[in-house]
Every structure is written in structure tokens, then in C-alpha cells.
């Protein structure tokens, strides 16, 4: 399945968002938040949220800001 992860095309076999994050090496307790196709996906839904071919997934974390 082809998806876009943070703007990069990747080929993955993850069924859910949770699996994708694990496969890509994101730490389970990390201060991150996710969106699929520009829609916010709450952390509580990561394990249930199924991925589809062509999904655009964004994973963000805190940085400095003005």
C-alpha cells in the first residue's frame, strides 16, 4: 500500500495508524499528534483507524514557536 508520510511516499503493509507508527519507529509515548488527509485523528483512535491506499499522514511534534 502506498501512502504519504510527512510528505514522503512510502510503501507499507500496516493495517492501522498505530501499526504504521510502530513500524516506522515512533516511540509509543512520544509527544506526537496525527492527521490523515488533513483531518485530526485523536490518539485514542490510532489502534482502530484503518489506512487506505493514497492516505496522506502527518505526524507532528513540539518545536519552538513565536
Amino acid at each position: 500500500m502506498d501512502i504519504s508520510l510527512n510528505g514522503q511516499r512510502v510503501d507499507v503493509d500496516a493495517a492501522t495508524l498505530q501499526e504504521l507508527l510502530q513500524q516506522r519507529g515512533y516511540e509509543p509515548g512520544a509527544a506526537i499528534a496525527c492527521a490523515i488527509n488533513q483531518q485530526f485523528v485523536p490518539r485514542a483512535q490510532w489502534a482502530q483507524r484503518e489506512l487506505n491506499n493514497g492516505d496522506r499522514i502527518d505526524v507532528v511534534a513540539p518545536i519552538t514557536g513565536g
Binding site: 510527512n6 519507529g25 515512533y26 505526524v59 511534534a61 513540539p62 518545536i63 514557536g65
Partner: peptide
């Protein structure tokens, strides 16, 4: 503070 895309190798 802000938010930006995080690559896992960046360490969180």
C-alpha cells in the same frame, strides 16, 4: 510554541 512534522529518527 509550535508543531512541525517529526521523523522518528529525530528522537521525538
Amino acid at each position: 510554541v509550535g508543531l512541525r512534522r517529526l521523523q522518528p529518527e529525530a528522537g521525538g
